[in-house]
Each structure stands twice: as structure tokens, then as C-alpha cells.
Computed example of a mutant assay.
Amino acid sequence: MAFENPTRDEIRGILENAGNIAVVGLSDKTDRTSYMVAQAMQNRGYRIIPVNPTVAGQTILGETCYASLKDIPEPVDIVNVFRRSEYCADIAREAAEIKANVLWLQLGIVSDEAAAIAEENGMIAIMDRCIKVEEAVTQPDRSKKG
């Protein structure tokens, strides 16, 4: 059976219940898409956890950056991936190891192998979708929670 992303209603539920979002491939350069998307999600009230081995130990968006998902010392709800497709299967395996709930491959990223690994390990897989766009169309403003 061919892969299908969750419905918009299912995505709404995923985002409503998400707290920590690990962003694999988050750049420390403010003009990069990964930075802009992560910043927008942070501004909407989500906790962003940067994952980028080249800047591990430094901060991005005020958060400590980790070299890998396995280095994150707290639970992760969504693993949001800004890496090329050929790296996604390994990222899916690491996401399974840390028991993430969702493997989210950003717009333009598709890996059937990563989706299969995610599903085999009880994760929801989402591919070729921008988390910022999906959040904007499905969520009330979380930053106003109080």
C-alpha cells in the first residue's frame, strides 16, 4: 500500500499534543529555511530542540544544540527533519531509539524507507509537508496560552 500522510484533522491533533520538537538539520544561519521555520514554531509556543553536529554545544534560538537525537536529555514528541532524503532512514532509526512520536520530513523530503522504519516502530510518519504551514492552518495561536 502506498504511503499517505495523515489527514489535516490528524495533523491538527498531532500538533495540539506536541511539546518538544527536535529539529534535525537546524541551521544557526538566520537566512536558512530551517531557522525561519523553527523560529516561527517557537514563536507559536512550541519548544524547539536544535540538532546539528556542526554547532553542538552552542545555542540556536536560545536553545542548546545537540549533535544527535540520542544526546537530547528529555522526551521528544516530533522529530522535524531538514536533511536530504538519503539521511532520513538513519534519522528515523535514531528517532525510534529515543521513542519519538512523530517523524516529520519537511517539504521536498521523501523517504519511503524512513516512513517504513517510523511506522514499524510505532511512530507517525509525515513527508513532504512544511510543519510551519500545517501548524498555521490547523492551530489557534499557542503563544497566547496562559
Rank of each mutant, 00 (worst) to 15 (best):
R93I: 06
L103I: 05
P53Q: 03
P6V: 04
P53E: 01
V76G: 12
R32I: 02
A96W: 12
K29Q: 15
D90N: 08
A96H: 12
V37H: 11
E113M: 04
Q139E: 06
Q39S: 14
F3K: 07
A115R: 09
N101L: 08
A2L: 13
K132G: 13
V23M: 02
M123P: 03
P75M: 11
A125K: 13
A96Y: 12
I60F: 05
I131M: 15
R32D: 02
A100R: 00
E119T: 11
T138I: 09
D128L: 00
R142D: 09
R93H: 12
Y66K: 04
I60Q: 03
E94I: 01
V76R: 04
A118E: 03
E86T: 02
R44I: 07
A125T: 11
A38Q: 02
V79F: 09
E94H: 07
G57Q: 02
I21Y: 10
T30E: 15
A89Y: 07
R93P: 06
P53T: 00
Q139F: 11
D128A: 04
E16L: 14
N17F: 07
V24K: 10
C65K: 10
S27H: 02
C88L: 09
E4W: 13
G45M: 11
A18S: 13
Q58G: 05
A18P: 00
E120S: 14
P53R: 06
N5Q: 10
V133P: 02
C130P: 09
D71K: 00
I109W: 02
V79A: 01
I131S: 15
A100V: 03
P50F: 02
G19C: 10
P73K: 04
E74L: 09
E120I: 10
E63D: 08
D128V: 03
N80T: 05
A125W: 07
R12D: 00
V133R: 01
A115V: 10
N20L: 01
M127S: 04
R84E: 08
S143A: 15
E134I: 01
M123V: 08
R44M: 14
R47C: 13
E74Y: 01
T59V: 06
R83H: 11
D77T: 00
V137D: 00
I124S: 14
S27D: 06
A56Y: 13
M36Q: 12
F82K: 08
D90V: 01
G25L: 05
Q42H: 03
R32M: 05
A67P: 08
F3M: 05
G108E: 12
W104I: 03
D9T: 13
Q39D: 12
R93E: 14
I49Q: 00
P73H: 04
